[in-house]
C-alpha cells in the first residue's frame, strides 16, 4: 500500500505522488514515514526530504516548516522547498561565496542584515549538500 506525499510551499505545489516511504527532517530527528504510520504533527528542521517510489529516490530541500503525518498521507507545509534536481549547483556556489564574503566584511551581528545573510548562507550550504548527495546516489 503506498502513502500519499504532498509537499507544498506558500506559492506552489512542489511535489505530489503516491510513494513507498518518506524521510523527513523532523524536530526530534530524521524520521522515516511508511504507510500506516501513526498520526504525527511535527515542525521541520532545515534539511532534506527523501521520497522513495519503487526503488527510485527523489530529494527535496526544505527550509523548515510543518509536516502532518496521517496513516495514508504525509503533508509537508514547507517554508521553501525545492526538488534537488532543479538546483543549479553553480548558482548555489556563487550564492554561498557571496554570503561568506559579506560576513567577512563584518556586518554587525544581530542586525537584520546579518541574520538575512546567515539564512542565505545556510540555504546555499543546504542546496549544495543536497545536490552532492543526489550525485552520489546516482553513481552508486
Amino acid at each position: 500500500m503506498p502513502i500519499r506525499c504532498e509537499i507544498v510551499s506558500q506559492d506552489r505545489v512542489v511535489y505530489t505522488d503516491d510513494v513507498d516511504i518518506v524521510v523527513l527532517p523532523g524536530a526530534g530527528g530524521v524520521m522515516g514515514v511508511l504507510p500506516n504510520h501513526s498520526p504525527v504533527l511535527t515542525t521541520l528542521q532545515f534539511g532534506i526530504i527523501t521520497v522513495r517510489k519503487k526503488g527510485e529516490e527523489q530529494f527535496f530541500t526544505v527550509a523548515g516548516g510543518v509536516a502532518e503525518v496521517q496513516p495514508d498521507q504525509v503533508t509537508v507545509l514547507a517554508d521553501a522547498a525545492e526538488n534537488v534536481e532543479e538546483i543549479d549547483t553553480q548558482r548555489a556556489e556563487a550564492a554561498r561565496k557571496r554570503a561568506e564574503e559579506l560576513l567577512q566584511k563584518g556586518v554587525g551581528p544581530d542586525t537584520d542584515q546579518y541574520l538575512a545573510i546567515q539564512a542565505a548562507l545556510r540555504r546555499s550550504n543546504l542546496r549544495i549538500d543536497a545536490a552532492q548527495r543526489l550525485r552520489r546516489s546516482r553513481r552508486s
Partner: peptide, 25 residues
C-alpha cells in the same frame, strides 16, 4: 478527523508558533 490521536513534536504550541505567523503572512 479529530478522533485520531496525534503525536506532537516538539509540542502543540511550537507547531502553532510555526504555522500561525506563516498563515498570517
Amino acid at each position: 478527523r479529530t478522533h485520531s490521536v496525534f503525536t506532537y513534536e516538539p509540542d502543540q504550541n511550537e507547531i502553532l508558533n510555526q504555522i500561525v505567523p506563516r498563515f498570517t503572512a
